[in-house]
């Protein structure tokens, strides 16, 4: 007849054996096997539970408690062993997998946007924020768009100052590489009713021999506003807002009287340098009534202003480039810097 004491003694022996074998286990499979052997359906603990019914009632309770205690102890030991073995395995794995992350055989490199594009994007973003849209146009233009519609007739001395590169199409001097982005103004006004708020960035051309400060092909951005009641004061304010957004609020602007055939009044706009001197940034003015008329816009109803300046120069200024030709050399040692 099995007694509670005998049962308990047997279970103690089992526990001792399990404890010994768990301590020796060094992988998860062994722990799982021990778990199954000592706590599974065919284990001594399970068998002992089956035998409870054969015990006297007074023995049964003590025996039940003993079985539960042993079972809990076993479960705890298995879990602890499992954690120990897993920790050990992880420790061995990570010890074996050491990498020096500064060993870079090859790396994924981000490409770069050209400095002109970066400058152009920044300018576009500032003007978009001020309510402008972006207009574009062809680089090869007719004399009408490049000159005549802009109030620069064939005999005008200003034509000479553009140092135009002509193209062998049409009549002599009829087709040319645009010498400014202003033709985009005309193309826009021809198809769009005012109000018009555009900026037109793009490449322009002059017969300038390439040197450290000149390129025959360079980039400008031009702005055009045509609306009711637009004033020279609006031009001054718009330039000021732009300069604050693009260069910083500490930079001051000023307009100086100047002359362009397509604006009247005309002005140069300067920005202040940290030393207090002024830097000429570009030209601007109120759109000449003849230019509006050439595009079928009544200057008695609509008024507007236009402005323009170089983009390449901004890139040159920002990074203090000592040779503007770097912008067209496409040397990766240069491109990768930005």
């Amino acid at each position: 007849m099995t007694t509670a004491a005998a049962l308990t003694a047997e279970l103690e022996t089992v526990l001792a054996e399990a404890t010994t074998r768990l301590a020796a286990a060094d992988d998860l499979a062994t722990v799982a096997a021990i778990d199954s052997e000592f706590l599974g359906k065919k284990s001594t603990v399970s068998a002992a539970k089956q035998q409870l019914g054969a015990l006297d009632a007074d023995q049964r309770k003590a025996a039940g408690q003993a079985i539960n205690a042993i079972r809990e102890a076993l479960t705890g030991q298995v879990e602890a062993a499992r954690i120990r073995v897993a920790d050990q395995a992880r420790a061995e794995q990570v010890a074996a997998e050491r990498l020096d992350l500064t060993e870079r055989l090859s790396s994924i490199r981000r490409g770069s946007l050209h400095l002109n594009t970066q400058a152009r994007d920044r300018l576009e973003d500032v003007f978009v924020g001020m309510g402008f849209t972006i207009a574009e146009g062809p680089e090869v233009e007719t004399a009408w768009y490049n000159f005549e519609a802009l109030n620069i007739p064939e005999w005008h001395p200003a034509r000479g100052s553009f140092d135009t590169i002509f193209v062998n199409l049409g009549e002599p001097e009829e087709v040319m590489l645009r010498s400014h982005t202003s033709p985009v103004q005309i193309r826009t006004m021809e198809v769009q009713e005012p109000p018009i708020y555009i900026v037109a960035p793009g490449r322009t051309f002059r017969t300038d021999t390439a040197d450290a400060t000149h390129l025959p092909a360079f980039n400008q951005i031009e702005g055009l506003v045509v609306d009711r009641g637009i004033t020279l004061g609006d031009l001054a304010g718009t330039m000021q807002e732009f300069v604050h957004a693009f260069f910083g609020r500490e930079v001051k602007t000023r307009l100086r009287p100047s002359y362009f055939p397509f604006t009247e009044p005309s002005a140069e706009f300067d920005i202040s340098r940290p030393d207090g001197s002024w830097l000429e940034l570009g030209g601007c003015g109120m759109v000449h009534p003849n230019v509006l008329r050439n595009c079928g816009i009544d200057p008695e109803i609509w008024q507007g202003f236009a402005f323009g300046f170089g983009i390449d120069r901004l890139a040159v200024m920002r990074y203090e480039l000592d040779d503007i030709r770097e912008l067209v050399n496409n040397d990766v040692r240069f491109l990768h810097q930005f």
Binding site: V225, G233, G237
Partner: peptide
């Protein structure tokens, strides 16, 4: 020109 008050459209 410097005496013209700057405004924005």
């Amino acid at each position: 020109y410097e005496n013209i008050p700057p405004t924005v459209p």
